[in-house]
Design a protein around this nucleic acid. Sequence first.
DNA 1: ATTCCACTAAACACACTGTTCAGTGGTTAT
DNA 2: ATAACCACTGAACAGTGTGTTTAGTGGAAT
Lengths: 195, 195
Amino acid sequence: MMAVYDDMNEKTKEKIQKSFLQLLQEKNFIKVSVQDIAKASGINRGTFYLHYLDKYDLLDQMEENLLAGLEVQLERLQPDRLLLEAEKGNISMHAVEVFRYIQLNAETFKVFLGGNNRVGFHKRLKQFFVEHFLEKMISNELFFNSTTVPQDYLSSFATSAFLGLIEQWLDNDLAETPKQMAEMYIQIIFFIKNL
Amino acid sequence: MMAVYDDMNEKTKEKIQKSFLQLLQEKNFIKVSVQDIAKASGINRGTFYLHYLDKYDLLDQMEENLLAGLEVQLERLQPDRLLLEAEKGNISMHAVEVFRYIQLNAETFKVFLGGNNRVGFHKRLKQFFVEHFLEKMISNELFFNSTTVPQDYLSSFATSAFLGLIEQWLDNDLAETPKQMAEMYIQIIFFIKNL
DNA sequence: ATTCCACTAAACACACTGTTCAGTGGTTAT
DNA sequence: ATAACCACTGAACAGTGTGTTTAGTGGAAT
């Protein structure tokens, strides 16, 4: 039984991640040094390197975790059902759950999507949506068979639009409820559908 | 007459910017050092600091220049006329010019919008579009008076969608002509109009 | 002729990096 | 109880890049 050591490792990792997130709210990722992180976490600088390769690795793992959580929500969201329900005027519970996940991790999303980030979490998130949701949706011939706009443009356009919605929500400090967001989202889907 | 010195200054600045752009195509902004830039430009490292505060300032000025050029194109593009023409099935010459400008500076746009950038040129470009074009368009009550979706969401959504179109174009190595892009763009405008 | 200007070359202190190594204290296994 | 184990500490290390400064070069303007 080495669960105690696993807990220890996890707890310091959590301390590091929490302090890192706080620092990112104050200043640029670039200007946050490993020294800063260690100091803010109350750990030795060497300890940081026992858990992460460097600060880029730290950011990478945190982004990965956030997306992994999002993936769980998106997997439950079946495009076919979503559209069928929407046509009856119902909002899928699963769609609301997606926005609730974002709400739950709002601070993290805000920091990663904000200007203080490195490679553009935006790009990564966009790619993620295209792969995990939009491709299934658009390739569904039942709903989307536009001949006027090429599929790759349709895909990029729709995903960006969706992300724009989320970014605005975060900028508004989540003034709307997840349900309201899901409703807007459904409206966008119908736009594209009626292309 | 000190035009000779001005020329000299400009030429070294151009050398720096050109080398910088090349370096950004190879590696991350973060991994590009002032030493690298100086070496690639064939200038002394100290000379770099005679023109720029640091590499962040260099990137900032280049982004600024790119947007300034774009602003010139966007100013000619009058939302009212654009829509009136579009309804008749005509594509505004000015709309095509906007895409031609992007085509002309494709390499720069690609590098700045790609993952190798710092604060996300994406964010800046989005803000730029909202300020210089979309606000005029959406606040034009003649065309947009949606009550179902709040204006800020509409704005963010529409701008992101437009940017998504451009990103896809760049990813496709500008396979489409500026005219084709302008046509797609008009289609998007009509989507939003018919919300 | 001399002042002006962009640029060079070299040196400077400083900050952060990633690694290493001996040591501490609590936990687990024998 | 003793020994092995493990996460962590503190301090040192060379290495790299930073931004600044100094003295000096050579061409252009006055």
